[in-house]
Design a protein around this nucleic acid. Structure first.
Lengths: 210, 210
DNA sequence: AATTGTGAACCTCTTCACAGCT
DNA sequence: AGCTGTGAAGAGGTTCACAATT
């Protein structure tokens, strides 16, 4: 068994990229790929690709490279993508709408099974076959629907109390789109999707470049 | 002058977080803050906060901490947020819609000045005071409107050719929401907003946790 | 007494370089 | 000959610890 603490966030993030690269190659009917080709596509070094994979096993063949199908399948296992994940969406504003219809999530196996919103005008709506429920019922529905991950897509001021609420319902993993930092107990996972941060990085480089 | 090559991406990303933290503190009328308080809010160490700032100057007072207004202002200067940035949005689907109405961008000074879409049905629409233009006119309009950053919000298969197009129009900075990796010349900046990556990280940890 | 600013120590991640396999 | 897998070296980022300041 892999010691999860020895694996860096960077490695996991790159594995996601390799996974996407392999999907693209498979779509193009490519059957074999070298670490060097994967590296070039992702603008990194081939040693990095091989080292990342080496934490989890040996998937290639010396002299030949990697079979795209096999490697894709192995990365899917590593990342836990051999199953689908039941996802709950909290906040059905602009971002919530966009996420519901974002095909990439579904493609990777993240299925939005329930939507929650505090606005009575939105409650009851059915979009893409998913009903918008009131927050009041969210614990019960999360359990019934076996929600494993909650996406937070509400204004920043409401985010923390909603996270606290869902933690009390037993949810252990959150993807946070609200531009605020969240406090959670040690056994709960939060990943932040901070869309301004990358724009600010562009701003920094444009401003400070030679 | 700062040597931009000595500043890591991590530092810039954290500066964005400090900036947001300061805005939140200022909203609460907090006038002074210590590196330790900033660190706690962002779940890092105080030494990290001080070290990050030290690359750019000395902004605090020993024994007293930092003035929130002053530090916010200094970080705004560092990140290039003392001006507004003219942004063009390519692709007016679900994500494009959501981004146009995402208040956080406007708040940070990233103003969407033009929208481009290849769909004739969308061209001519006016939303939030911004017109949807055809791609054919995009070079001209980008120049007129002095667009500095282009946000890519189109399906992955169209992303690369659109980036190439806008590079030929003189655009030097892109924020890419399409789930594909883009190739650009060395003097062009691309930052990727890969919304699946964080979900996959959650999937990894949920799958491999003890 | 409190807190910054920072060189030095430490640790982690990346790259090198080559043995080993096909 | 070509390419992987990996220990070791190197680079880079983080934390320590303390002098300096209020």
């Amino acid at each position: 068994m892999i010691d999860i603490n020895k694996i860096s966030d960077s490695t996991i993030r790159r594995l996601s990229k390799y996974y996407r690269t392999l999907n693209e190659l498979i779509e193009k009917n490519v059957e074999t790929v070298s670490s060097n080709e994967i590296a070039n596509i992702n603008s990194i070094t081939s040693a990095q690709v091989r080292k990342d994979l080496s934490f989890f096993g040996t998937f290639g063949r010396r002299g030949l490279g990697y079979n795209t199908f096999l490697l894709k399948d192995n990365i899917a296992t590593i990342l836990g993508l051999k199953k689908t994940w039941n996802v709950g969406l909290v906040g059905f504003g602009n971002i919530g709408h966009a996420l519901l219809q974002y095909q990439e999530f579904k493609k990777q196996g993240f299925i939005i099974k329930a939507i929650f919103d505090s606005d009575p005008a939105k409650v009851g709506q059915i979009i893409e076959g998913v009903v918008v429920n009131p927050i009041a019922d969210s614990c019960e529905i999360s359990k019934e629907t076996q929600i494993e991950i909650i996406i937070i897509a509400v204004p920043p001021k409401n985010a923390q109390s909603l996270v606290d609420h869902f933690i009390s319902c037993g949810i252990k993993a959150f993807l946070n789109f609200a531009p605020t930092s969240l406090k959670v107990p040690e056994n709960v996972l939060v990943k932040n999707e901070n869309m301004s941060i990358e724009l600010e990085a562009l701003s920094f480089f444009l401003t400070n470049k030679a």
